[in-house]
Design a binder for these strands. Structure first.
Lengths: 194, 194
DNA sequence: GCGGTGTGCGTACAGTGTCAACATCGATCC
DNA sequence: GGATCGATGTTGACACTGTACGCACACCGC
């Protein structure tokens, strides 16, 4: 009884780092990145405001870790979508999956591409997701659009579409976004082969 | 000497609302939207922390107004770029201008598409910028890409490209981004006509 | 038993957005 | 002229945030 710690809460918990990440993801899903406070995350884990600092240098470091998790998930989703043997079809499926991921995890998606510091493996170089896209896009290259430009264009296309839908610049019912993403990506892929 | 107001500062200034907007834009240019504090804006105008509330309901309302200014500017820039008689060329010029605008005002651009509440005239419906783009894109429509999809695709393309460049997912020297944007938009426009 | 080391806690501080009450101005009516 | 009134700014306070510092606890090999 010498301290104010409640009895039912052990001083050391099993894996606070993982709990913090999970809690941060939760808070992100409901409320957006702006409303995510480090203290609230700590509270959700039943832990003091300073505890997270043992596992993350910063609030930004936590967010970075969350973003990293998001990128891994995105790569997984894209890989899974890249199933068809036909290149245009596969590219369309990837595009739809990209947008669907953004729509399912809007705050996470925004955080990923806005994270204060950027891990090395989330951009053009060294990103698994980019490699998956590149593989498909390269096979559709032509004189008008060399392989590298085509990959960038495809990425920009789906990324922009996702961003515009999330920010409600293209107002859609949730169900519509999938169809739109698929249609536009497929249309784009078809344009590359006359 | 009954108050603590300095003598050289009048109680009522001319147009505080405009000053606040300008100061907010300034703070945005250097430091990003996350570091923009209402109090700092007020300080920059030589005014108390509560003064802005006479002119804007909220911090968000101020940011919205700044974003609105950005959209007007963007529309102006696009209109100006839409000069060439040739449709593909004009579309490429618009795309390059869009990306250039984003690169010149990164924080403003991010704010515009992330603003907490969205004014009516910044999306697909009723936006002057969208209308300008639409006019050009429609003339490039084909069977594979009907006019509406094509406009959306073109917008997504340049928007995504801008976002990826800003967030340094496509690492570029500042000078390169212009050329890349032009090349990719032009390539896209050319794809639409075999 | 014993010190060391990794974890979590309490306190404290500066900074934020915003509410409520008050002060000051310029225009307007007597 | 002077009183009045609405618009505009001010001060003070509150709850909240991120984070620096130093202490408390719990487990490790010895």
């Amino acid at each position: 009884m010498s301290t104010s710690i409640q009895e039912d809460r052990p001083y050391h918990r099993g894996d606070l780092r993982a709990s913090l990440l999970a809690a941060a993801l939760d808070q992100l899903e409901e409320g957006g990145a702006a409303d995510l406070s480090l203290r609230a995350v700590a509270r959700a884990c039943g832990v003091s405001a300073m505890a997270p600092y043992r596992h993350f240098k910063d609030k930004d470091a936590l967010l970075d870790a969350v973003a990293g998790h998001g990128f891994a998930e995105l790569a997984r989703v894209l890989e899974q979508a890249d199933a068809s043997a036909e290149a245009a079809e596969a590219l369309a499926a990837q595009g739809a999956a990209y947008v669907a991921f953004a729509c399912r995890h809007p705050a996470l998606f925004r955080l990923m591409f806005t994270a204060p510091c950027r891990p090395k493996d989330t951009g053009r170089e060294g990103s698994p997701a980019y490699a998956i896209l590149q593989r498909r896009a390269a096979s559709l290259a032509s004189e008008a659009m060399p392989a590298e430009d085509l990959t960038l264009a495809a990425w920009s296309l789906v990324h922009g579409l996702a961003a515009l839908i999330l920010d409600r610049r293209i107002p859609l019912a949730p169900a519509e976004s999938d169809a739109l993403a698929r249609r536009i990506t497929l249309g784009f892929a078809r344009l590359t082969r006359p």
